[in-house]
Amino acid sequence: MPVPSSSAERTLSTTLASNLIDYHRLIDNVADQLAELGWEYPNLFAVRMALEESISNAIRHGNNEDPAKRVHVECRLSPVRFWSKIVDEGAGFNPSAVPDCCAPERLEVPGGRGLALIKAYMTSVEYNECGNCLTMEKRLDVRREAIGDADGEG
């Protein structure tokens, strides 16, 4: 389970309304700060995609865009690590029950690609037991195949 660790990391913590507009400022802020920390374009794209999909999923599917509900986002940023926890106020879901959007017979189904993108762009992705809390992490110091990882051997 990825957990917050270094005291040298920058932290952001915010509570978002359940609309599909306001959270873009948070994503811009995270990307700007990571750029200041030396992150380059492919990895910034990866973080943007993971935040876009995870927060919009929390608003759209978790909270059903209920204005009475909020999404809580915590981020920790360092030159080599992006970590985030996204918590919605919905009933949760079972991520393993989400159909594989990449299966040939489902290619023409318009929805359900957000989770596949989050998993592809992050080093690790975990949901809590009830499925309303997503923790994800991208490490640039780990040699692996995470998409966009400029430090990978390619």
Partner: peptide, 16 residues
């Protein structure tokens, strides 16, 4: 420069 899965969904509907 960037598009979301919601945009992909719209493109899939267009393709159909």
């Amino acid at each position: 420069e960037f598009l979301s899965s919601a945009a992909l969904g719209k493109l899939i509907t267009f393709e159909k």
